[in-house]
Design a protein around this nucleic acid. Structure first.
Lengths: 334, 334
DNA sequence: TTGTAGGCGTTATCAC
DNA sequence: GTGATAACGCCTACAA
């Protein structure tokens, strides 16, 4: 005991000595291998207990070649849209005794690749959330990162499963909802130009080319962007707005409130994502709901399959669910 | 080359062979030790580059006894109040090449200890965010987890630094703000009874025993709690409400809006935390701002000090900053 | 300045 | 069933 204390760490050897067996046997017991004599097994367990032994994770990782860790790479840890998936992943992985290592790229596109590669070294697999890097770079990178699953990103090739959102479908639902309310002239608060999901959203509008007048306003992905865009929205003559995401929509909502513009009486506003806050704003935000938590859980299932050399489920595109709340209403005069 | 491929991994030995030096030398070069001949150093670097060598994190961890990982244990990963600190920690730690491992206890108090201990095995240090476990248990646990810093929790002993919020002070600022506006009867939407920070908030009210009538309403920490409490708030006869946190306040705001209660004209509402959304609600939420990002950065600094055997800065209590927005106004008839 | 060799703590492959 | 013993890949005295 004094020796193990002196060494600063109780190792499998200490347990072996105390139980009067070999390290190999201790290892077998600790891993629950059934080929160990019951009496010996108990002795080992007792010794481990008494010494307060806990296996070294680093040593196991080295011997097994597995870290039991999943990397979660995200452009901005404070973006609420990414929390659901993170929790879904974390909770699902925990059941299999896997942990999640987070990395925040702070929206610096040029560091994404570096961070991903570096993270991959410490982890058995990766979840790439809405990577901002260009298509070709991503395509080059994926094989090196595998196993990896892509979240919220446009399809690339078939090499890595992609759990995505069918943005276009969500937009179509929103537009249909609005046209149903009599809106004809609709503004779109566009996200970052480089954003693939922004392009996908725009595609959703195309279906309605002949039925609506679309006014696309360059905006962004943050509160402040939506807030700043209020003037342009009002000038556009649109009776309804679809924002790039809920956060932008809330920014807009705030600005409209300050300007005394009544929502939805004078202007209907819709977002995208259904972040937790959306239902609590006033007026409550109409939006296209994205099942983030589920996305995280599915990401885990894909990874788990790949980690066990099974084929992961094919990529899946989730269709957002329209959630009509009170921020949208009949078009004025309609 | 074919051999390293066959082995499935390029190791330091492969680089050594190719550069015609010993593994020790490669190790020295990779770690930037200055005692290496320039010419040899370049040869090694070239070989590493050509072989696309990356050191094994597991092996380093084992040899060095360091994982370069910090564990971040949090009751609920989707709670926006915890994101700021997580990002602050993650970004600050990244500068020193440390990563953050997250663990979500899903508000299960009984699993907190287990999860913390298990996490600590994989990490060099821990950040415990608002642990829900009782005082004695925490006190027993801390030595085993060290180095560790506590975030958002009542002080325990001096064994581990605690970065906390002076909740009472924040409450006092809010109350002063409200009394300044003529409010005399103030409702408090209380947080979870076991929450230490709830007790601290209550202490803040004591200062004003003689000046205000306090109506404490059992509530909770979530949207739905605030939403459900609207009736009781109205029945209480209070002209102003302070909610346990912003999330609760927003829930209340939503309900009030549905009920057609004008804020702040008929009722003033204040929150606590200053989550990013607070400034974008309508009316914008008056609150006590908690510098979460800073808290995360400071947590890192403390840990970094401890990891280098320096004394961490003493525990610090952050005083929230009153942010008066438009959800609070003069008391009706005052 | 560079190489040799032993250790970090486990697991896995053999014999016994 | 159990015990040696060699990996796993890196670091670091110590020696040269």
């Amino acid at each position: 005991m004094s020796r193990s204390r002196a060494k600063g760490r109780v190792t499998i050897a200490d347990v072996a000595t105390r139980a009067g067996v070999s390290r190999a046997t201790v290892s077998r017991v600790m891993n629950g291998l059934p080929t160990v004599d019951r009496e010996i097994s108990e002795r080992v367990l007792k010794a481990a207990e008494e010494l307060n032994y806990t296996p070294s994770v680093a040593a196991r990782s080295l011997a097994l070649g597995r870290t039991h860790t999943i990397g979660y790479i995200v452009p901005d840890l404070t973006n609420p849209a990414f929390h659901g998936a993170m929790r879904g992943l974390s909770l699902a992985a925990a059941k299999e005794n896997y942990r999640v290592l987070v990395a925040d790229t702070a929206e610096r596109v040029e560091e994404e690749a570096i961070l991903a590669v570096e993270s991959r070294r410490r982890c058995d697999a990766l979840v790439l959330v809405a990577p901002r890097m260009p298509e070709e770079e991503l395509r080059r990178l994926l094989p090196e990162l595998a196993p990896v699953v892509l979240l919220n990103r446009e399809p690339t090739d078939e090499s890595s499963p992609l759990l995505g959102i069918d943005w276009a479908s969500g937009i179509r639902d929103l537009v249909r909802h609005l046209t149903g309310l009599g809106h004809r002239r609709i503004a779109y608060l566009a996200g970052p130009p480089i954003s693939a999901s922004n392009a996908a959203r725009l595609r959703g509008f195309e279906t309605f080319q002949d039925q609506i007048e679309l006014v696309s306003i360059p905006c962004g992905a943050m509160f402040s962007d939506g807030h700043a865009a209020a003037g342009q929205v009002l000038d556009s003559g649109a009776t309804a707005v679809i924002a790039f995401n809920d956060v932008v929509a809330l920014g807009l909502l705030g600005a409209l409130h300050e300007l005394g513009v009544e929502v939805p009486d004078r202007l209907s506003v819709a977002g995208f994502d259904d972040i937790p806050f959306a239902k609590f704003t006033s007026p409550a935000l109409t939006t296209a709901s994205v099942p983030q938590l589920e996305l995280g859980e599915l990401a885990w299932e894909s990874l788990w399959a790949m980690l066990n050399n099974r084929k992961p489920e094919r990529s899946a595109m989730f269709r957002p669910r329209l959630v009509a709340r009170s921020s949208t209403g009949r078009a004025p005069g309609a």
